[in-house]
Simulated scan of single mutants.
Amino acid sequence: MGARVAVYFVASPLQYLAARRIAENFEAGARQVLVWYKPGVTPIVREADWDAAGYMPWPRWEPLPGPFGRHRRLRDNIRRVAALVGPCDSLHIHSAVFDTEAINYFLRALPKACGAREMRARILPDGIISIRRYPLAPAKRLAQYARKLRRLVAPELDYWCFGGDRIGSDAPFCDRIYVIAGLPHEYPADKVVVLPPLVTPRAGAAAGAASERTALVIGQPLVGAGLMKPADRDAVSDEIRAWLAALGIRRIIYKGHPKDPDQELKQPDYETLSLDEPLEVHLANTPYDAVVGVRSSALLFARQTSPASTRVVAFGWGRVRFKSDDERRQMGEAFRSTGVVLNEG
């Protein structure tokens, strides 16, 4: 029986990189099990780096065929992950959030399925989302108890209800919260562990700028995510193009976002960047004269990993719809503290 197993539920390249650092620096000696549940992560997974790895379909979006497909998918996922983990004494479950049925049921079901006598839950960083708390509203708390009713027909689906921050940072099952160096946060100090740099640049990479001045535009859903009106999005896109032209940058590369099929910030003359590695790794190893976007977390990592000569600018903040003034203030502090220049136009 394996003494200790560390399981990582990841949904983004950033979470994947964080899981690798945790496995190397904080879970050495454990059996390392990766579970990814967003198809967009598949191209960057190196299964050879893990003792076991597998894709887990998201119950809401990929239910099993037939009646009660979502419910049966939840049960099937528990069996699927338990087979990857195998028998163990101690289980460390890592996820960016625990207030979701796709992950929460594992807190109680996985230890029982694997014979673990001890379980600890630990939180993965999730970029700009992780700089602030998201308190559970009363309706969300009631929804947790509704999810607990599943155990009446499937005892292993015993939802672990909790209050406070929705990611689970205040919950009794959480004993550790991993954060990224340089980013502010509001988590309890006694639980926080700062990760080392997520990316180690390859030797000789990014030693100097390319002979042709080059910029990277980082896309994200803006109108599609309700962050901007179409007219504002178009104005920001034109502003970015004009700003790069004023710097004498003619070669512009566009990195789209998986949730941005319309490539909202892409201009006709931009090249399209396709990657088989996390964007953060690419940024650490590829020199650009400028990296620009709106409020993507990738701008933070561009500033942390790029040479000081690289201009990293967030455009359009005066046009972005934030959920609250507090969200705007906290995100602004995070970008400025990292060294990203905010353009409020």
Rank of each mutant, 00 (worst) to 15 (best):
K229N: 07
S274M: 07
L107A: 11
R4L: 09
E212C: 01
S274G: 05
A137P: 06
G332C: 04
P87Q: 09
S130K: 08
C114F: 05
S211Y: 01
R120C: 00
D76R: 13
L107G: 01
A116D: 03
N285P: 03
R147D: 12
A235W: 10
A298P: 03
Y55Q: 09
H185S: 07
Q304S: 11
R75P: 00
L244M: 10
I22Q: 04
D262T: 13
R151D: 00
A206N: 15
M331S: 03
C114A: 03
L91E: 06
A302F: 01
P138I: 04
W61G: 05
V312M: 09
R295E: 05
T286L: 01
P125Y: 05
P135R: 05
C174L: 13
A245T: 14
S169L: 05
D126Q: 09
K266D: 01
G115S: 02
V320L: 14
L14S: 04
W36S: 09
R75M: 04
T310K: 07
D165H: 02
R150T: 03
S337N: 07
L124D: 02
M56L: 14
R250Q: 13
A290D: 06
R132S: 12
I167W: 06
P39Q: 10
L152H: 13
I123P: 04
V291Y: 01
K191Q: 07
V153G: 12
W243D: 15
G226T: 08
M119P: 00
Q220V: 02
F162H: 10
A308P: 11
R31Q: 07
D165K: 04
A82L: 03
A30Q: 11
W50F: 05
N25E: 12
P196T: 04
V320Y: 14
S297G: 10
D232W: 05
L142P: 01
T100K: 06
Q263A: 14
L110K: 11
S12W: 02
Y105G: 02
K255I: 03
V194D: 00
A207K: 14
Q32Y: 04
K229G: 07
P278W: 00
S296M: 05
